[in-house]
Design a protein around this nucleic acid. Structure first.
Lengths: 141, 141
DNA sequence: ATACTTGCAAATGATTTGCCAGTGT
DNA sequence: ACACTGGCAAATCATTTGCAAGTAT
């Protein structure tokens, strides 16, 4: 952080601790809970800090559905996501599992796809099996 | 609509006219503008109706970035989207253009992917070329 | 006539901004 | 000391809900 002219405050330290303690994406609110012991916490500051930490590449965020944005620790090979439009299930995969998918997209469309910010959405294997031909226009909130 | 016990009001007719006049996804606010001539309009009603129309399959919605949700007319073969994390560009493709991508995802992961609700996000051909190795953690708002 | 619809006001949920006091360096 | 931070209150944006009055059928 220091390299970016940022100070190392307890709040920021605690936030990073919370975020780096797991791979699970969490809401700003959940990150704030990591500060509940500290003198005081405040969502506004948490949002401000999440933004700063994201700018310097220590944190990133994902949109996995209709809820609030989710924050995750950033890393060299960030995990990628899939969400089921029917049951809402979220699957997490290591980037290499999508190498082939990325290759096909690159070849056929010329885009360098990443599913770290928006997930691959569709039907998970279970719902796919259960549901008939599923027009699937209803999305699991 | 009638088949679903819904009444055919002018508001709804106008909303559908606005939505079916283009393939472009639009915000609830933009849909509401289609009613500006009518006696009065109201965003609350527009949202209520968009929800109903979505339930009966005449409308669907997409999330293409950080902004508000976008509504589009629903159809047999709904278009699918790609958005660039850097320049924000949105590309629209016909479903068949993604058949191979879908096939690979189905084979390797077992999911039936659709990019009608969440786009494929990543780097468009241009940004991909310009940007070096782009860690790309900053996403175009 | 009845039930579905709408406008309007107000509530929610998520996130942002302004401002001044607090504190790393 | 000085500039960056944090708390608090209030503003904003997108969307939802309650309710009484309006209107398709």
């Amino acid at each position: 952080m220091r390299e970016h002219g940022m100070r190392v405050s307890t709040a920021r330290r605690l936030m990073l601790e919370a975020l780096y303690a797991t791979e699970e994406p969490m809401t700003a609110e959940q990150v704030a809970e990591g500060l509940r012991d500290a003198p005081r916490s405040d969502l506004a500051s948490v949002y401000r800090n999440l933004e700063r930490l994201e700018e310097i590449g220590l944190v990133r965020h994902v949109h996995l559905g209709h809820g609030p944005g989710l924050y995750v620790r950033a890393g060299q090979a960030p995990r990628e996501y899939l969400v089921c439009d029917l049951c809402g299930r979220v699957a997490t995969v290591e980037p290499h599992e999508l190498d082939e998918v990325r290759a096909v997209i690159a070849r056929s469309l010329g885009w360098a796809a990443r599913f770290t910010h928006f997930p691959i959405s569709g039907l998970c294997p279970e719902c796919r099996a259960k549901d008939p031909l599923s027009t699937v226009e209803r999305s699991a909130k």
